[in-house]
Design a protein around this nucleic acid. Structure first.
Length: 503
RNA sequence: UCCUCGAUAGCUCAAUCGGUAGAGCGAGCGGCUGUUAACCGCUAGGUUGUAGGUUCGAGUCCUACUCGAGGAGCCA
C-alpha cells in the first residue's frame, strides 16, 4: 500500500459504488452480534462504517469489536448512500488495519465539567464542538487575511517584545530581556503607524498579551488581534472599512461553515442579517439612550421575560418531580434527574439575571457623561439592536493618549467601538490618531508619560505627519459572537485566562 | 481583591432528622443483523479535597486551609 488513505470522508459523495480506504480515529462503536457500526472520524468529517461478520476475517471482526474509543485505524470498503447514516454515506467494510488500540479514553460521550475538559484539552480538541469551532476560527482568520490582501493592504509583522506602552501600563506583562526590562506586546499599533507612513495601508496580525485582572467570559490574557492602520483616511471611511471587514468575515463563515454552525447550534438567521449599514451612535446619543425612558422599558420587559421563564421552569420542575416518583425503571428516574439538574442550573442563572437586572437598569439611568461605558451598559445597547453598533466620540479622559481630539468638541476624541449585537458587546476598538505634534506632546505630558520613550513615535508628527487611523479586532471575541459560544476560552485551542493556565 | 456555590467511583451526580455510601455513563465479560448518546444481563471499581473539632456514631454539623465554578470589581 502506498498511501494511508484514498479519500477523505467529506469527499465520499464522489465515490459512490467504488472502493475507498479511509484512515482515522474511532469516534464511537456500536456492536451487534453479527454487525458492527464503527463511527470513523478523519478530520474532514464522520462516517459510519458497517462491518458484517460474514464478510471479513473472523479474527479481525473480533478485534474490531473490542476496539476502544479513539483507536486509530484504516478501513477499506465500498461506499454506498444510505439515509440512515450520518452524512448520508457509509462504508461496507471489507478490510481494516488497526494502528493503535486505545484503552480507557477519558472523554466519554456523556457530560463533563469545565475543569476536567480543560485538563484534557489536548484530547478535548478532538471533540465535535471543538472541531467545529476551530474550523470556523480557521475561516475567520483566512477571511481576515484575504480581506486586507485583496484591498491593497500590506502585512507588517510588529514585534512581540516591545519597548513602547500603548495602552495602560498596569496591563503589561514584563519580560526580563537580558537584564533589560521589556514587555509583551499588547498592541502593534504604534509600530504599525510607522509602517503606514511607508505603505499607506497596512495591517498586523498576531498574539496580544494583557495582564488585566479580568475574570470574565470575555477576557483572555493572550488573544489574537488584527489591526489595520491607514493613512489619509477619515473617521467615516474608517468605520466603512470596519463595517465591510466584519461583513466579509461573517459572509465567509456562512459560505464555508454551514455544517459547523449547525453542529454548534449557532443563530444562522441573525448572522444572515449582518450586511449593509450598521447602526452609528455618538457616545452622547448612547448616553441619552441609556438614561432614557425606552431603556427602562426595555429593562422592565427583560425582567418580565426572566420572571415568566422562571415561572415556566418551576412548573416544569414540579411536573418532572412527580414523573420521577411514578417512574418505574431506574434509568427513567436518572434521566429525569439529569433534566432536573439542567433546569436547576438555568434557574440559578435566571436568579442572577433577575438580581442584576434592576442594578443594571439603575446604572444605566444614573449614567454620568464622562464615564466609560461599563460592561452592562454595552450589553444593554447591544441587546437593543439586531446589527452591530458603532459608538463614536468618547470623552478623551477614558481613552488612550494617541487618540485624536475632535475639532468641534475638544472634550471628545474621534474614535469608535463596534459592539456586536444581541448582548455580545465590544469586538472592535478604533480611532483617528493625533497627528499634531504639539497636541500629542501635551497629552503625553498630561498623563505623565516620559516623552523620551515616545521619541520615534513623535517623529512621525515631525516628518510628513498625515491624518491616519486604524482599529483592532479581537479574533476570539469575534468567533464567540459568530458561533454563539458562551465563553471565549472555547474559541482558542489553548486558552490563557487571568487565574488559570491548564496546559 | 470581594461575594455566592461546590469538592462523594475514571466521568456526571444522588444519599431524607447525624445512623449499613448508591445510580447512570465509562471499563471488562457475555447476548443480539441496521444501530444513531443503541439495547439486555453479569463483574470490577470508594481513606467522601486536606487538617483538626463536636458526637455513642459524621459524606452530612463546626473551624481553618487547598482547589474549582459562577458573578462583581477592574478592563480597547
Amino acid at each position: 500500500m502506498t498511501n494511508y488513505y484514498s479519500c477523505k470522508i467529506d469527499e465520499l459523495a464522489n465515490y459512490t459504488g467504488k472502493e475507498v480506504t479511509l484512515a482515522g480515529w474511532l469516534n464511537r462503536l456500536r456492536s451487534g452480534g453479527k454487525v458492527l457500526f464503527l463511527m470513523l472520524r478523519d478530520g474532514s468529517g464522520i462516517c459510519q462504517c458497517i462491518v458484517e461478520k460474514e464478510k471479513i476475517d473472523p479474527e479481525l471482526f473480533n478485534q474490531l469489536k473490542h476496539l476502544g474509543q479513539e483507536s486509530s485505524l484504516q478501513v477499506t470498503g465500498i461506499v454506498r448512500a444510505d439515509e440512515r447514516s450520518v452524512g448520508g454515506y457509509e462504508i461496507a467494510v471489507s478490510n481494516a488495519k488497526i494502528f493503535c488500540q486505545s484503552r480507557d479514553y477519558p472523554i466519554t460521550p456523556k457530560a463533563h465539567g469545565v475543569e476536567f475538559l480543560m485538563k484534557h484539552r489536548h484530547l478535548h480538541l478532538r471533540s465535535q464542538r471543538q472541531w467545529a469551532i476551530n474550523r470556523i476560527r480557521h475561516t475567520v482568520i483566512a477571511a481576515v487575511r484575504s480581506f486586507f490582501n485583496d484591498n491593497g493592504f500590506t502585512l507588517i509583522d510588529t514585534p512581540i517584545f516591545t519597548t513602547a506602552a500603548g495602552e495602560g501600563e498596569q496591563t503589561l506583562f514584563g519580560v526580563d530581556y537580558f537584564d533589560e526590562k521589556l514587555h509583551l506586546s499588547q498592541t502593534g499599533q504604534l509600530y504599525l503607524e510607522t509602517a503606514a507612513m511607508s505603505h499607506g495601508k497596512v495591517y498586523c496580525f498576531g498574539p496580544t498579551f494583557r495582564a488585566e485582572k479580568s475574570k470574565t467570559r470575555r477576557h483572555l490574557t493572550e488573544f489574537w488581534m488584527v489591526e489595520p492602520e491607514v493613512a489619509w483616511i477619515t473617521l467615516e471611511e474608517l468605520m466603512d472599512l470596519a463595517e465591510n471587514f466584519v461583513c466579509s468575515i461573517v459572509s465567509k463563515v456562512l459560505e464555508e461553515n454551514r455544517n459547523e454552525l449547525n453542529i454548534l447550534g449557532s443563530d444562522i438567521e441573525s448572522l444572515e442579517k449582518i450586511k449593509g449599514s450598521f447602526y452609528r451612535l455618538t457616545y452622547c446619543e448612547a448616553v441619552e439612550i441609556l438614561k432614557g425612558e425606552k431603556t427602562q422599558e426595555f429593562m422592565a420587559a427583560q425582567l418580565e421575560g426572566f420572571l415568566s421563564r422562571e415561572k415556566q421552569l418551576k412548573e416544569k420542575l414540579k411536573e418532572l418531580t412527580e414523573n420521577q416518583e411514578s417512574a418505574k425503571k431506574q434509568w427513567q428516574k436518572d434521566k429525569i434527574a439529569t433534566e432536573l439538574n439542567e433546569i436547576n442550573i438555568e434557574l440559578g442563572e435566571l436568579a442572577r439575571k433577575i438580581e442584576n437586572n434592576p442594578k443594571h437598569a439603575k446604572l444605566a439611568k444614573d449614567f454620568v457623561w464622562g464615564k466609560d461605558l461599563g460592561g452592562s451598559d454595552e450589553t444593554i445597547i447591544s441587546l437593543m439592536h439586531d446589527k452591530p453598533i458603532f459608538v463614536t466620540h468618547y470623552p478623551k479622559e477614558v481613552k488612550a493618549f494617541y487618540m485624536k481630539a475632535n475639532k468641534d468638541n475638544a472634550k471628545v476624541v474621534d474614535n469608535f467601538d463596534m459592539l456586536a449585537p444581541a448582548g455580545f458587546g465590544e469586538i472592535i476598538g478604533g480611532s483617528m490618531r493625533e497627528e499634531d505634534y504639539d497636541a500629542l506632546m501635551e497629552r503625553i505630558n498630561e498623563l505623565g508619560y516620559n516623552p523620551q520613550n515616545y521619541s520615534w513615535y513623535l517623529d512621525l508628527r515631525k516628518f510628513g505627519s498625515a491624518p491616519h487611523g486604524g482599529f483592532g479586532l479581537g479574533i476570539e471575541r469575534t468567533i464567540a459572537w459568530i458561533t454563539g459560544e458562551k465563553h471565549i476560552r472555547q474559541c482558542i485551542a489553548y486558552p490563557r485566562m487571568m487565574d488559570k493556565v491548564y496546559i
